[in-house]
């Protein structure tokens, strides 16, 4: 993974220990010979690893965990694992198994709670609930 502009990266660090695996430049717009070329819509399909596609049949997306009250903790965990494998590699995913499980449990519980849109807590800014940066 290339470091973001302005950031530094220790290139002696093994790839598996960096912030993520190597990736291609985003599809869609490519720079060539000093000009931008718009690719066809067929080229704009998001890139997915084979791991990411396995969840599609279950209604899971390949790139994120959908906020869905029907998603079981097991499905959330499977999706988190996929995301971790894509981002950090399989070894780190294995090492962080316990943390992923705890987070999946928390996400599933939050997703399962219905929100009354007219409830007494309409403010999500956190200004009063604790949120000064």
């Amino acid at each position: 993974m290339r470091p973001p502009t302005g950031a530094t990266m220790d290139y002696n660090t093994p790839r598996s220990l960096r912030n993520g695996p190597a990736r291609r430049a985003p599809r869609g717009l490519t720079r060539g010979a000093g000009s931008l070329r718009l690719l066809s819509t067929a080229d704009l399909r998001p890139s997915r690893s084979p791991l990411a596609t396995t969840g599609q049949a279950n209604g899971e997306t390949g790139t994120t965990v959908k906020l869905d009250a029907q998603l079981s903790e097991k499905k959330v965990l499977a999706q988190l694992r996929r995301m971790a494998a894509e981002t950090f590699g399989p070894m780190r995913t294995y090492e962080m198994a316990g943390t992923l499980e705890r987070t999946a449990g928390a996400l599933a519980r939050i997703a399962a709670v219905p929100l009354d849109l007219r409830d007494a807590a309409p403010d999500t800014s956190g200004v009063n609930g604790g949120g000064d940066a």
């Binding site: 965990v65 981002t87 962080m96 709670v113 409830d119 007494a120």
Partner: peptide, 27 residues
């Protein structure tokens, strides 16, 4: 390190819902 890495994977919608729930729970 694990907390940071897994935290990077959490979608915004969950965090915002958590914040809203936090206020409800507080009340």
């Amino acid at each position: 390190r694990q907390e940071i890495e897994v935290g990077q994977l959490i979608p915004a919608a969950y965090v915002l819902k958590a914040r809203r729930l936090r206020r409800q729970l507080g009340h």
